[in-house]
């Protein structure tokens, strides 16, 4: 009886974890600029992988491998945060421009204005 309960809990944790990993992937595809993509990637990464790890730990029970899983979970937690910070700082330092609403139209308008000024059209 206990086996059935623990297996169902493991299935629940794993499916929710994989769902959140997919949320991160869709987020990295859909968002317009790198700063919003960072939100999606690092946050959902940690949550999804963390849930999967907890599910595996429950499936594993008390053993040495469960400790290894805990070590991987802790490492993943800290590494994703540092990766997010490093990429965001690099993007900010190489002054990647922020995306705002109708950016392309504004750029076109500026080019037109510049063209008019230069050629006095």
């Amino acid at each position: 009886m206990f086996e059935v309960i623990s297996n169902s809990v493991v299935v629940l944790f794993l499916s929710v974890g994989v769902f959140f990993l997919w949320v991160g992937i869709v987020g990295i595809i859909r968002f317009p600029d790198i700063y919003s993509r960072l939100h999606a990637a690092t946050k959902c990464d940690i949550l999804g992988a963390g849930l999967v790890l907890i599910g595996l730990i429950i499936y594993e029970g008390f053993s040495f491998d469960a400790l290894k899983l805990l070590a991987i979970a802790a490492l993943l937690l800290s590494s994703s945060l540092v990766i997010g910070h490093a990429i965001a700082r690099a993007a900010r330092r190489t002054d990647l421009v922020f995306w705002h609403e109708n950016r392309e139209e504004k750029i076109m308008l500026e080019k037109e204005k510049l063209f008019r000024e230069i050629f006095k059209v």
Binding site: G17, V18, L21, G24, I25, I28, I29, I34, R37, L38, A41, D45, G48, A49, V52, L53, L56, L69, I72, L76, S80, I83, I87, A90, A91, T94, L96
Partner: peptide, 30 residues
């Protein structure tokens, strides 16, 4: 996620996609 790595306008988008792929591969490996 490889699509973002391929299309990403900037180097850092590709680095982010690689980091995401790394985490997914880690979970698959386990």
């Amino acid at each position: 996620a490889l699509y973002r790595a391929f299309k990403g306008p900037d180097v850092l988008d590709r680095v982010l996609a690689v980091s995401l792929i790394g985490t997914n591969t880690l979970v698959i490996l386990m």
